[in-house]
Design a protein around this nucleic acid. Structure first.
Lengths: 197, 197
DNA sequence: AGATAAGTGGACCACTGATCCGAATATATG
DNA sequence: CATATATTCGGATCAGTGGTCCACTTATCT
């Protein structure tokens, strides 16, 4: 790649990061190009689709999450590791408003630029889940895809302005449903606001 | 309203129903107008926003769901009534792909044409929930909005092609989390496919 | 320095929801 | 039945979206 192209690419990526943080992943690509003083065509050549742009943007985040899963696998009890990692996953998505829908679509779309990252993430979660199931800390009738779906659903809740305030509490509820309950009381801090209609 | 206008309105509504059933709630309004042999402006005068069109389209469904809640309140045990109604709600949304996002946005947007219907639905669910909580059949730390959020999250799962296959099973998981567990085993048929990665 | 391959971005396309306004039309009145 | 009027209609238009094309510029290598 030519030096100026690399510079342009990096600059676009930096601007895109700011734009996504500000307006969510549905931000207009044309706006990003404008803010980067670059033609839309240039942006689209470096990143042919919105997914490709996001993949480049979120790549390190994905790696961090899978690394964290690996670390937790040896540093924490199976149930603590699982719940802690789930919390990290859901919490992470809040930084990228709207990314949940794209990830849900990508997990089965091998054409999507986000596909590989999503599959890796699911595998990392599946490892933690299996480990928890092995010691009967998590119910046995769910698999990695179920876990991925639950993460996505909880993350989606956090994306909805009207429901985001409940996301934290409902995370505890759902996490409690995943765990068998033996040690759930300590693993899940159910201290959220009591039901207040 | 003039007779021809009413006829036009009804015709548009019928066509919209077919279009939404076919392509989901994000179907192009222009397409609906075209299929109804009507100008886009005509459609938008009868239904100024997409929400308004959907409100007219889903009005009877909303009424049926709240009526069902009322009926269940006297015909079934608190836990059975709650779970059965939840299942109906989630199942209903599958007929209108994409409606979940709009409903989540409408529940707190008093300007939305769907606002009133969503609030009514939430209230119906809250009644069933309170009744179940009164006999300790449902956990006490969730309220009507939490329930609405959980329904929305499960419905959203059903909207995602890649995750829809898990929606049924995960409904059981989440329903089990709402119930206290005393009678959960019988109220929730956990017979879905075992985890098969 | 010149040849050549690579990168660029303005102009364009089809599409979206939304708005305007002259034309068509149903209804009410003479 | 004929005319007047108020209502409804829909094509034209606008700003916005993602995406594609291609003449032009520019960096790089010989």
């Amino acid at each position: 790649m030519r030096a100026d192209a690399r510079k342009n690419r990096d600059h676009v990526l930096a601007v895109a990061g700011a734009a996504v943080a500000e307006h969510g992943v549905d931000v207009s690509l044309r706006d990003i190009a404008r803010r980067a003083d670059v033609g839309l065509a240039t942006l689209l050549r470096h990143f042919p689709t919105r997914e490709a742009l996001l993949e480049a943007l979120l790549h390190t985040s994905f790696e961090e999450l899978t690394a964290k899963a690996d670390a937790l696998e040896t540093s924490a009890s199976p149930e603590d590791a699982l719940v802690s990692w789930l919390r990290d996953c859901v919490g992470w998505t809040t930084e990228y408003r709207g990314v949940t829908v794209l990830m849900a679509a990508a997990i089965e779309d091998t054409e999507s630029a986000l596909h590989a990252s999503c599959v890796t993430l699911r595998a990392a979660g599946a490892r933690l889940l299996t480990r928890a199931q092995a010691v009967d800390a998590a119910r046995g009738d769910i698999d990695g895809t179920d876990l991925f779906a639950l993460i996505a659903a909880l993350a989606w809740l956090g994306d909805q302005p009207s429901l985001a305030s409940r996301a934290g509490h409902l995370f505890d509820v759902v996490a409690g449903a995943i765990l068998t309950g033996a040690a759930a009381g300590s693993a899940v801090d159910g201290g959220a606001t009591e039901g207040s209609p």
